[in-house]
Simulated assay, not measured.
Amino acid sequence: MITIKGQLAIRTVSGRLGLFNVGRLATSIGEFTIKDALLDQYQEGKYQGDFAIKQIRPSYYSHGGRLVVEIRAELEGMTLDEVTTLSEEDEEQLSTNVPDPLEEETATPLASPPVSEPATQKTSNSALASDEPFGMEPKTPAATIDTAADAELFGTVWPLTETVKLDTTVDRKRLRAQCSRMEQLGYSMDFKTQTWNRKAA
Rank of each mutant, 00 (worst) to 15 (best):
S28Y: 02
I29S: 15
T33F: 10
K35D: 08
A37I: 11
L38A: 15
L39C: 10
Q41A: 15
Q41W: 10
Q41C: 15
Q43N: 15
E44F: 03
G45W: 02
Y47R: 06
Y47H: 03
Q48I: 09
G49A: 04
G49P: 06
A52K: 13
I53V: 02
P58H: 09
S59D: 14
Y60I: 00
Y60P: 00
Y61N: 01
G64Q: 12
G65N: 07
V68F: 09
V69R: 09
V69S: 02
E70I: 11
E70R: 13
L75V: 12
E76S: 15
E76H: 15
G77F: 06
M78E: 13
E82K: 05
E82W: 02
E82M: 03
E82I: 04
L86C: 13
S87R: 09
E88R: 11
E88Y: 08
E88C: 04
E88M: 10
E89M: 06
E89A: 11
E91Y: 00
E92I: 09
E92Q: 10
L94G: 04
S95K: 00
S95F: 01
T96D: 03
N97C: 04
N97V: 05
P99N: 06
P99Q: 02
D100E: 06
E103N: 03
E105P: 01
T106A: 14
T106K: 12
A107Q: 11
A107L: 05
T108E: 09
T108D: 08
P109V: 07
L110N: 09
A111M: 05
A111G: 11
S112L: 10
S112P: 00
P113Y: 08
P114G: 07
V115R: 07
S116E: 15
P118G: 07
P118A: 04
Q121D: 01
K122V: 05
S124I: 07
N125F: 13
N125A: 12
N125I: 06
A127P: 01
A127H: 14
L128H: 03
L128A: 01
S130Q: 07
E132H: 08
P133D: 07
E137P: 00
P141S: 01
A142V: 03
T144S: 02
T144R: 06
I145M: 07
T147S: 05
A149D: 06
D150S: 15
E152S: 12
F154H: 05
T156A: 11
V157K: 05
W158S: 01
W158T: 04
L160C: 14
L160F: 11
